[in-house]
């Protein structure tokens, strides 16, 4: 697969992309490296894995990470009930060693996503979603799989991958990932889309939407994301929900009144809704409540140099 055919596949899947994203995907694919995608929540990181599964015509195997995730949930587990039953049935068997050996065969192995992805005859797309939510121990455990494409089960030994999956790891950067993990991956950072790209996404996902409304919503969402007073920035999915809600209500012009009525589709906390105020359709504001002519945050957003955190 070359760059243009990958881009065509992404277009087919209606995934709005730029050359940086397409090239990075191609590099990861060609080198057989896992792809680590970072970015804020709701910028379309998980979607990349889904689209790649569609583009490569592969099955998508997903592992959702969470605190406390361990090998038994991610890799494999022995089917204890079945093993016990088997022991009961074969209790009078003459050869106990053979019985023990048979109990730790593939027949009693419950495959979890990681094992399933490397034991599959056909290559799959393996999505390890929100790796930053898993513990550091689990991250270390992944290293063997990501670099050697093999895993070790103590009772069985090392299992090499039958087919090489295309691995996509996503992270919301809630904690820094280890250097060891980063070094094994190709890296992609997805920022929030600019207004133009967001309009393209709305057009691609909701082809019948009013063009004027799409631009208005994209601009309003952009203003909200730029505003420091909004704690939970709206995601792309929320943009699409908002446009759909406005369409369903027959609204073709995003007035302040219309925005206020439907703001619940975008901002999901009362603090954020209060902070939004009249910003949805008004000019951009940094939320500092100051005269913006000399405000640092405003200067930053208008292209002036600045530094530091929020």
């Amino acid at each position: 697969m070359d760059l243009s055919s990958l881009q065509a596949k992404l277009d087919e899947a209606r995934y709005i992309h730029d050359s940086a994203l397409a090239t990075t995907l191609l590099v990861a694919l060609k080198l057989g490296r896992p792809l680590l995608i970072e970015g804020a929540a709701g910028v379309g990181k998980t979607e990349v894995a889904k689209v790649m599964a569609q583009a490569l015509d592969r099955e998508l195997v997903r592992l959702q990470c969470y605190e406390g995730l361990d090998e038994s949930k991610a890799l494999y587990e022995w089917n204890y009930q079945k093993q016990l039953l088997s022991i009961q049935i074969q209790m009078n068997r003459q050869d106990p060693d053979a019985l023990t050996k048979s109990l730790f065969s593939g027949e009693y192995l419950l495959e979890r996503p990681l094992l399933r992805s490397i034991r599959s005859e056909e290559p799959v797309v393996l999505l390890i979603d929100e790796i930053d939510k898993a513990d550091e121990e689990f991250e270390a455990f992944l290293l063997e799989l990501l670099s050697e494409m093999q895993i070790t089960i103590p009772e069985v030994g090392s299992l090499r991958a039958r087919s090489i999956p295309f691995v996509v790891l996503t992270s919301n950067r809630t904690r820094p990932l280890s250097e060891a993990l980063r070094r094994r991956c190709a890296y992609l950072y997805i920022p929030y889309p600019d207004v133009e790209k967001e309009v393209s996404i709305i057009r691609a996902k909701l082809p019948n939407v009013n063009e004027h409304l799409a631009v208005q919503v994209a601009q309003a969402i952009h203003n909200l994301r730029e505003n420091d007073a909004i704690l939970k920035k709206p995601s792309i999915a929320e943009t699409l929900d908002w446009v759909s809600a406005l369409e369903a209500l027959g609204i073709s012009d995003l007035t302040e009144e219309a925005a206020r009525r439907t703001i619940g589709f975008v901002l999901k906390s009362s603090e954020d809704q209060e902070a939004a105020g009249s910003l949805l359709t008004g000019p951009q504001d940094c939320g500092c409540g100051q005269d913006h002519a000399h405000c640092g945050a405003c200067a930053e957003s208008s292209g002036r140099e600045d530094g530091g955190s929020r």
Binding site: T23, T24, E38, R182, R183, A186, Y187
Partner: peptide, 12 residues
């Protein structure tokens, strides 16, 4: 540029 960035740069 993008191809080399994917290989060399591992964080933002």
């Amino acid at each position: 540029r993008w191809a080399l960035q994917a290989v060399y740069a591992k964080s933002r």
